[in-house]
Design a protein around this nucleic acid. Structure first.
Length: 575
DNA sequence: GCCGTTTTCGGCCCGACTGTTTTCAGTCG
């Protein structure tokens, strides 16, 4: 059974937790299995490398025994027992809003509900509303939820919510009773996808603000409407975006913001620290357990300082290393460090803006440098540049850059790596170009070996400075091609090739996890927008947040370097 | 189920809202 890996074990533990939840087990026993799963997830090692799981925090004798049984026999007594007691069809019902383990357990025991279908039938027959603790409204909600089941994605890619974020931001700014507000939640932490949007609102008039919130024209459902919390759904085109608003007095704004920025695991860590000091944290402040006195904070930084911690960036609040490594948070790359954008398109290929327009836009952004990197000839659908057009474009860029003195414009190209592993231009063309990007836009279905041959050819070419969007993924839409990232990172380190974090919120490629690994191995990273229009130049911040999630330090990111440092690097080792 | 300089029992983060009750359990974040 050696083919079982760590992911299988994590799934096993989570499955056990779900079964126990439906069984109505002790909540702490349930969360113990979840904690054990998390502990495994966080550990860098493979299961073979962990000789004794019981040594991990949150895994004791019991769970370690289960893990070892599972590794040896492919199953465990506990799981078999649970499977025989509880129908598997109940498990997905836990995802339905309003249904938890207790209610599902009751539906099973009292009504014999075993899956979505029988649940639906029970609702339609009116049996559910007859149960003690259930009523007409609960039955209606469950029925609606069953009918909606599977129709909606669990998490939304960032581009699906950005318009709603902008609209709500403008909407909140116009409400007079609001003193300040901020978007918290996983959006603030820079996650690739979000489940909902959490707005924290400082106001002394929560009720009247709440009444105004539900009048937003895009609100298509009000899920909850209390005195300090309003939950709604906004519809933007086809996408339903769940949004929570929390209203709070200004003195509690900082702690409320911290609480709803999360993550949940991060909050648990901090609350444990507070507890050990005789204090307790809630979203309203920090309470001294002895005196009962509650301390409030002006800012999140003050709140962290109270616990002798520096301000911890939201992007790393995942309940992992951020407390122990808090001192390193200030070394993470930030938007202020970013001096330029090295991947963008113009009307010469498939961009919407001219060279002049892009230069002017980058000047307005205060960039110190930029690279114009249109597509190469292979990409005919994108009007890729022939050698002849490339030459003319670069002449134009060289002429124009003489007229701009506060911004350096690198000549560049986003060159295709062809399906056969060759590059779209010869060295005699590439050797003239300041910033050569190589990337894959074709034959995504090739096997790993072929894909890696293509990427290796690009890395080993002395003129190629960077591999763009290294995996080709589109978040929530496609996985990308078969790339062996470990190997690509090694190649990048060996050859001095930069790896991109493509900042387009549809891509975020490399992901934070892989960027972190790349940095650990010594690779250089560049964060770029790949802008095809003016507004896409603003995407840089998505890339930076993604990098920060991967603990990427300023010096790893070439966009933070000076023009001279970057130029030296680009021309090093080229003939 | 896990944990321990409050250590082998008794905790385990804390609060809002809903729907069901008639004082609170369940769910959610």
């Amino acid at each position: 059974m050696s083919q079982l890996n760590k992911k299988d074990i994590i799934q096993l533990l989570e499955r056990i937790a779900v079964y126990l939840e439906i069984k109505g087990e002790n909540a702490f026993r349930i969360s113990a299995y979840r904690k054990a799963a998390q502990s495994l997830e966080r550990d860098e090692r493979s299961i073979e490398e962990i000789e004794d799981p019981a040594k991990l925090a949150g895994i004791g004798k019991g769970t370690a025994g289960i893990i070892n049984d599972f590794l040896e026999t492919g199953t465990t007594e506990l799981l078999q027992e649970l499977e025989s007691e509880i129908p598997e069809g109940l498990l997905p019902l836990l995802k339905l809003p309003g249904l938890g383990g207790k209610k599902i357990g009751k539906l099973y025991q009292e009504l014999g509900v075993e899956n979505a279908e029988t649940l639906k039938a029970a609702c339609e027959a009116g049996e559910v509303s007859n149960l003690a603790g259930f009523g007409k409204k609960t039955e209606e909600k469950i029925l609606a939820a069953v009918n909606e089941m599977g129709k909606r994605p669990e998490r939304l890619p960032l581009p699906e919510v950005t318009r709603t974020v902008e609209e709500l931001t403008a909407f909140l700014q116009d409400i007079k009773e609001i003193d300040r507000f901020e978007l918290a939640g996983s959006f603030r932490r820079g996650r690739e996808t979000v489940k909902d949007l959490d707005f924290i609102i400082s106001t002394s008039h929560p009720v009247s603000v709440g009444e105004k919130l539900v009048t937003h024209p895009n609100v298509t459902a009000v899920i909850g409407h209390g005195e300090t919390k309003v939950s709604v759904e906004l519809t933007d085109k086809e996408t339903i975006v769940p949004v929570d608003f929390r209203m709070v007095e200004d003195e509690s704004f900082a702690t409320m913001l911290h609480h709803f920025t999360g993550s949940k695991d991060h909050n648990v860590l901090l609350r444990q620290i507070a507890k050990s000091r005789g204090e307790s944290i809630s979203e309203y402040g920090v309470k001294n357990e002895e005196s009962g006195e509650v301390t409030h904070f002006d800012t999140e930084a003050d709140f962290f300082h109270h616990f002798d911690l520096p301000w911890i960036a939201p992007e790393v609040r995942e309940g992992k290393e951020e407390i122990d490594d808090a001192a390193h948070v200030k070394e993470l790359v930030s938007m202020e460090d970013m001096k330029g954008d090295l991947h963008m398109h113009t009307t010469w290929s498939d961009g919407a803006q001219s060279i002049d327009e892009m230069i002017e836009a980058c000047r307005m952004k205060g960039h110190a440098f930029m690279a114009i990197t249109d597509h190469s000839k292979f990409l005919q659908v994108a009007n890729g540049l022939t050698e002849e057009r490339l030459k003319r474009q670069h002449e134009e860029i060289r002429t124009k850059r003489e007229t701009v003195d506060d911004l350096h414009v690198f000549t560049g190209i986003e060159m295709d790596i062809l399906p056969d592993g060759s590059l779209d231009y010869g060295d005699e063309v590439l050797k003239e170009i300041d910033f050569v990007i190589a990337s894959i836009h074709s034959s995504f279905s090739q096997d790993e070996e072929t894909i890696m041959k293509r990427l290796e050819a690009a890395c080993r070419n002395p003129h190629v400075a960077m591999i763009a969007h290294p995996t080709g993924r589109l978040i929530g839409r496609r996985d990308g091609y078969q790339v062996n990232l470990e190997r690509l990172i090694d190649l990048a380190v060996q050859t001095g090739t930069i790896l991109e974090i493509n900042a387009n919120p549809n891509r975020l490629d490399l992901s934070a996890e892989w960027a972190e690994k790349a940095q650990e191995k010594g690779a250089l990273i560049s964060i770029n927008t790949d802008a095809h229009r003016y507004d896409m130049l603003d995407h840089l911040s998505y890339g930076v947040r993604n990098a920060r999630r991967g603990w990427i330090r300023k010096e790893t990111v070439v966009n933070t370097w000076s023009v001279k440092q970057l130029t030296d690097h680009l021309w090093k080792n080229r003939l």
